[in-house]
Design a protein around this nucleic acid. Structure first.
Length: 810
RNA sequence: GCGGAUGUGGCGGAAUUGGCAGACGCGCCGGCCUUAGGAGCCGGUGUCUACGACGUGUGGGUUCGAGUCCCUUCAUCCGCACCA
């Protein structure tokens, strides 16, 4: 078959008949199948795009043939860093390069032959999309879920600019090699922590991979404990968070995060120089290093003391980089006797190690980090750790010095970016009124085209007077805009809500439409999004639900991650490694159907693996085999309607294939589904090999029809062509997918494996109706079994129905 | 470092979830067909010292029975909050 001709022909016909467009009249049968949208890169579609979109489209086509009204939209996550970096390097404007890239990718995506509903396309960099991203920001602000605070950024003094983590290599700027320091800026945050508990709890009800749920649970990192307030000699107070309040009598020092505001205030004259040097050093260290448990713990005494509220003991205050200001209260109590890290720290700095927990079982090594029984703990001696944790916090609470609390590792979401290519933050700063949100009617706050991207110490937008200069929406005086843009994750945290009503000019989405179309029934994308995008999208959905815009709280009912296709050398594909596989070459040679079928057959979908094209020819040959069979049977004539042993066997093969292809497609197990189809084709060839006069032609033709239907989601153009040649009146995709006839799968006889003491001895064919006693008797009567059990006592016979018999003897 | 995963023939990968390891395919071997075959059709193919034994990264355990469950250890991959 001339694949290129056939593919083009059907793509045009499908487009004309609007086969792939969602029909709103059938909304009650909707199936929302969503693939993560693409970043418009300058390179062409790579294998990863194909691997995500090809097989998932086959799944969507399967669902369509199962009678669902499938909605499968596509769009572009078009804002982001790479376009801006490209602009800095080449002078080509991000808008121009992005639009050009999108146009190329659209053509390629269309040539893939997927059922994308292009009437619902969205591009996040267009005004009619980012207008609503800004709307989302305003709604979160209105509802107290967006706020400003100081937070550190990576600052390169060489380039005079903020860098993404990705641009920092070994603590240095990737462009100029300058050592990066942390610098505090006032930035916008979304209060995702307000939903920490619900985000954790609702994971239980999701049809998501367990590993993804586990990762989110750990990311949210709930821990239950208490806050204890320490008072400094200066009179200032700070709280520490601890899960081990039972050890509070063993505190011999406290540690503040270096960034803690009290550090500068309390630091003594004598210690000033050492503390400043330590702060300088910390600003150059990244978080992964700071949290490393094997790295040597360092810290500096700040020359000030605090009082332990449990026993009024005076303890020194240290700073240490292993305490993060962003986690808990940014301060911890040091209990060297009962914490590995504190033990190492105390040993290094000569701090007292006070034992307050004993094991009770003679294990008296320190540090002792398990629960135990309290000693040296005033009124709490003899209590068990678990009880003491509650009791100690309760008694501290009475003095106003403690409280039970739940802490999360999850941090609020920093959304400000000091960059150009993103959605402007719709806020205005007025000398008189302070921070003022832009009214919704004035959206979008347009991103100006003429700006200077070259890094020179200011955000690109801050340099555009035309952009910055505005009037206060409240008082009408001169005011300034926010010069930052939103994290692109904000754009992608709600795009699935826009698709079903993508062209709505008045609102981000129509409430009624969205509540019928969502949640997404199947979401497919890479596992690298497990913690960030997928968590942000869940948060935004819950927030909008609480504002009354949605009546559901989870955006993605069912989730599947595709694996990663690596280069032939087993490494991630990259230009620098020279191991990039271009789909185009294969599509040129074989067509898109063959390429997609190979992606489905050659890999385990959720695993991926190194690229290897040995199998692509075999997949092409398989389609040739199908085509020859279809051609031959189409011309066949015959009146034989016999239904003998061979016919029964063929019918079994047919229904076995139908049953399993259905199951496997449902489970995204494409490789086994294709294997079942190959087996089926082998069975058809076997039947066809008989003398023509003996064949039941009607049966054979029905079987081949089922084959074309079964295969249609996998190779849509190829099968649409075969179907039309076989007189299919309407599109194969408007024809119901075959359902298995379970009666045809009942076999009269079953083969058993027979073991003696768990060793395979022989096989045994028995009637499906055989009773346990029959099976036992037949097994023992087998010569090989009789031989193996001769002279021994038969202790037991284990029978697993339809599978196995195990004779246990001594 | 922390968190999550993976490890099965020469290769890509299966295994009804604790029940015949290696489905399906590649490769290889053989046969048929053919003027020819890098086409097609049919059959074989885990390893070995081979009527038996051994085999799912390593070492142990649970069980009548383990690729699957538990412990140990090694190796590799992914994420870590400003890449998207």
């Amino acid at each position: 078959m001339d694949m290129h001709y056939v593919e083009k022909k059907w793509q045009e016909k499908w487009e004309k008949s609007k086969l792939n467009y969602f029909n709103k009249k059938n909304m009650d049968k909707k199936f929302y199948c969503l693939e993560m949208f693409s970043y418009p890169s300058a390179a062409k579609l790579h294998v990863g795009h194909w691997y995500n979109y090809g097989p998932t489209d086959s799944y969507a086509r399967f669902k369509k043939m199962k009678g669902y009204e499938v909605f499968q939209p596509m769009g572009f996550d078009a804002f982001g860093l790479p376009a801006e970096n490209y602009a800095i390097k080449t002078g080509i404007h991000p808008k121009d390069s992005t639009e050009k890239n999108i146009a190329t990718m659209e053509t390629q995506l269309k040539a893939m032959g997927a059922m994308f509903d292009w009437s619902a396309e969205i591009k996040t960099c267009e005004e009619d999309y980012y207008k609503w991203t800004q709307w989302l920001f305003l709604k979160l602000y209105e509802n107290g879920l967006a706020y400003r605070k100081e937070a550190p950024v990576n600052w390169c003094s060489g380039c005079n600019t903020v860098l993404a983590n990705e641009q920092v290599i070994d603590g240095k700027c990737e462009r100029c090699g300058t050592v990066i320091v942390k610098k505090n800026l006032t930035q916008w945050f979304f209060k995702i922590t307000a939903y920490a508990e619900e985000l954790l709890k609702d994971l239980d009800g999701l049809d998501w991979p367990e590993k993804t749920k586990a990762m989110q649970r750990n990311w949210i990192g709930r821990s239950s404990g208490g806050e204890i307030e320490f008072t400094c000699e200066s009179g200032d107070t700070f709280k520490v968070f601890t899960t081990r309040a039972d050890t509070v009598f063993g505190v011999s020092y406290v540690v503040l995060a270096p960034e803690h505001p009290l550090v500068k205030k309390l630091c003594s004259k004598e210690q000033r120089a050492a503390v400043d040097a330590y702060l300088e050093e910390t600003s150059k260290t990244d978080e992964i290093d700071r949290l490393s448990t094997t790295r040597e713990k360092t810290g500096v005494f700040i020359g000030h003391y605090a009082i332990n509220p449990a026993n009024d003991k005076r303890v020194p205050i240290y700073i240490a980089d292993y305490v993060l200001y962003s986690y808990g209260t940014g301060a911890v109590m040091g209990v060297p006797a009962h914490d590995e890290r504190d033990f190492a720290f105390a040993t290094k700095y000569g701090l007292p190690i006070n034992r307050v927990i004993i094991s009770g079982n003679g294990d008296d090594d320190l540090p002792y980090c398990e629960d135990g029984i309290l000693v040296n703990s005033l009124g709490h001696d003899g209590e068990k750790s678990a009880d003491a944790r509650k009791a100690i916090i309760n008694s501290l609470a009475q003095k106003g010095k403690g409280a039970h609390c739940i802490n999360y590792r999850l941090r609020d979401w920093l959304v400000s970016r000091q960059r150009y290519w993103g959605a402007p933050i719709p806020m205005v700063y007025c000398d008189k009124c302070g921070e003022v949100p832009v009214p919704v009617k004035d959206l979008p706050v347009k991103l100006p085209y003429d700006v200077e991207f070259k890094p020179d110490g200011k955000s690109p937008l801050a340099k555009s007077e035309e952009f910055m200069s505005t009037v206060c929406p409240k008082c009408g005086r001169k005011a300034r805009r926010d010069p930052d843009t939103l994290d692109t994750f904000v754009c992608s945290s709600w795009y699935f809500l826009r698709y079903p009503d993508a062209k709505n000019p008045d609102e981000p989405f129509d409430k009624d439409v969205i509540n019928k179309m969502l949640p997404v029934d199947k979401y497919v994308g890479g596992p690298e999004h497990a913690c960030m995008h997928l968590l942000y999208a869940r948060f935004i959905t819950k927030a909008l639900r609480d504002m009354g815009y949605l009546n559901f709280g989870e955006p993605f009912k069912s989730l599947t991650h595709q694996g990663v296709i690596l280069g032939p050398d087993g490494n991630r594909m990259s230009k620098s490694k020279g191991n990039v596989i271009s789909p185009d070459d294969y599509i040129e040679q074989y067509g898109s159907d063959v390429f997609r079928l190979y992606l489905m057959f050659g890999f385990s979908y959720t695993e991926g693996g190194p690229w290897n094209d040995d199998g692509i020819k075999s997949v092409s040959k398989f389609l040739d085999r199908v085509e020859r069979l279809a051609e031959k049977t189409r011309a066949m004539k015959g009146r034989n309607t016999a239904f003998g042993r061979d016919e029964k066997e063929l019918n079994y093969a047919r229904n076995y294939a139908i049953l399993n292809v259905n199951k496997d497609l449902e489970a995204f197990s494409f490789n086994t589904a294709v294997a079942r189809l190959m087996e089926y084709v082998n069975a058809l060839y076997k039947y066809d090999a008989a003398d023509d006069s003996l064949k039941n032609v009607k049966l054979l033709k029905d079987c081949v029809n089922d084959l074309i239907l079964l295969l249609a989601p996998f190779t849509p153009h190829f099968c649409e062509e075969l179907w039309s040649l076989a007189d299919g009146k309407k599109s194969v995709f408007l024809t119901p997918y075959p359902e298995a006839d379970m009666n045809a799968l009942v076999r009269d006889e079953v083969e058993y494996a027979v073991q003696v003491n768990s060793k395979m001895r022989c096989k045994l064919v028995l009637s499906k109706d055989a009773t346990v006693d029959d099976i036992r008797a037949a097994a023992l009567a087998e010569p090989k079994i009789a031989e193996a059990t001769e002279g021994k006592n038969i202790v037991n016979v284990i029978i697993i129905p339809n599978r196995l018999i195990n004779v246990i003897c001594k």
